[in-house]
Design a protein around this nucleic acid. Structure first.
Ligand SMILES: [Zn+2]
Ligand SMILES: [Zn+2]
Ligand SMILES: [Zn+2]
Ligand SMILES: [Zn+2]
Lengths: 142, 142
DNA sequence: CCTAATCTCTCTAGTAACTATAGCTTCAAG
DNA sequence: CTTGAAGCTATAGTTACTAGAGAGATTAGG
């Protein structure tokens, strides 16, 4: 059995984050010691490793919640799990596309600045007027 | 003079967002009509367009706050503004690098799944064990 | 056995950048 | 004059944590 601190060490997830995951129901409530401290077993360790790895790959917690409940039903077809992964892949690709457009505009801005005064700064100028941009770069999360 | 609704239309920034920007001091408090409704002039319109465009390019509000106060001092050298833009460019590039690593892992996961049951699903398997990943993909924001 | 250092406990609040809701007042059109 | 849209304030919710306060538990050394 592991204390919360050991579990944190073994998984790389910080102690308050573990408690937070418990609070939102992503980790089940563990047993407690005589002195009311949380004690975790191997199953919890693996579950938390799964969460950690999925987070590292950018899955939102709600998607992870779904993946975990799927992985509790090993006989079911895996189409739903694959769908979640593909959705995540699409989201990642969309973010890359958007960020590349931003990268291009920022490069142009920085490159065109003559390093004089603010009055003539291309950075300030472009920020004030999207017509000076080479591409459209819609808002969207990023 | 523009009402808040017109200003929202003209800039593409939603009404509650404009009030939020005022609340955090990014937009100065505008004048009011007899009936206590906000009224904006041309200067405010341009300022909000600047904010909107910088947001679209991914600048955080704190950076925008600095850029705005720089742009109020046109005689100053623009090095600080350029520095903020370069920092934003670096941040964007870092996010792209990270997302590309994720994209690669997600592609592999999805491609290797045989579409059987959860028990044999490569997606679930890889999520449970980072050793099955081809690269390291550290946590970090993004 | 006692004490000091380290963990752990609960609870609250704060982060970024908004978005949504509730309940009210004001304005413009017919 | 009435109705519907737009505006007002204030509060709370979003995502995924992180930080802090103040109290109790555990462990290592003496
Ligand atoms: Zn410049
Ligand atoms: Zn632009
Ligand atoms: Zn599968
Ligand atoms: Zn991995």
């Amino acid at each position: 059995m592991l204390t919360i601190g050991k579990l944190a060490q073994d998984t790389g997830v910080k102690v308050p984050t573990i408690r937070y995951y418990e609070q939102i129901g992503l980790l089940p409530e563990p047993g407690r010691s005589a002195g009311n401290q949380r004690l975790y077993g191997q199953g919890q360790l693996e579950r938390l490793r799964f969460i950690r790895h999925a987070r590292d790959l950018g899955f939102p917690l709600e998607a992870i919640r779904d993946l975990l409940s799927l992985s509790d039903r090993p006989d079911q077809p895996c189409a739903a799990a694959d769908g979640i992964a593909r959705a995540q892949l699409d989201a990642v690709r969309a973010r890359i596309r958007r960020l590349k457009a931003l990268e291009g505009e920022l490069e142009r801005m920085v490159a065109q600045c003559a390093h004089g005064t603010i009055r003539d700064c291309r950075v300030i100028e472009v920020l004030g007027d999207h017509a000076l941009c080479a591409q459209d770069h819609p808002a969207a999360a990023g």
